[in-house]
Simulated scan of single mutants.
Amino acid sequence: MTPHIRAEKRDFAKTVLMPGDPLRAKFIAENFLEDVKLVTDVRNMLGFTGKYNGKEVSVMGSGMGMPSMGIYSYELINFYDVENIIRVGSCGAYGKDLDLYDVILAQGACTNSSYINSFDLNGIYSAISDFELLNEAFNVAKKLNIHTKVGNVLSSDVFYQSDMEDYKKWQSLNVLATEMETYALYLNAARYNANALSILTVSDLIGTDKETTAKEREVAFTNMMKIALELV
Rank of each mutant, 00 (worst) to 15 (best):
C91N: 12
Y52M: 07
S203Q: 09
I86Y: 03
N84L: 08
A106T: 00
R87Q: 06
K168C: 11
K143G: 10
L197T: 02
K210C: 07
L185V: 04
Q171C: 04
N78R: 14
S118E: 13
P22T: 10
L17V: 01
A189S: 13
L197Y: 00
V150Q: 07
D11K: 11
A220K: 15
K143E: 14
V103E: 12
V82G: 13
V158S: 11
T40L: 00
L23W: 12
L98M: 01
G95W: 00
A7N: 12
K96V: 06
V88E: 10
L144F: 13
K51V: 05
M164L: 03
M45W: 07
S126Y: 08
S118T: 13
S155W: 12
R10T: 15
M60G: 13
E83G: 11
R217M: 14
G207A: 08
F138S: 15
R10C: 10
D120T: 06
P3C: 10
K168E: 11
A137N: 00
R6L: 14
C110G: 08
V82Q: 12
D97N: 15
V42I: 15
S203H: 09
L17R: 02
S58F: 01
M66G: 09
T182Y: 05
Y186H: 12
A29W: 15
E34T: 07
I146S: 15
L38K: 04
S198K: 00
R10Y: 11
Y74A: 06
I116G: 11
K149F: 07
K226D: 07
L17G: 07
A214Y: 13
L187T: 12
R6D: 12
K210D: 11
Y80R: 03
S118D: 11
D209M: 02
S126D: 06
A177N: 02
K37N: 09
S73R: 04
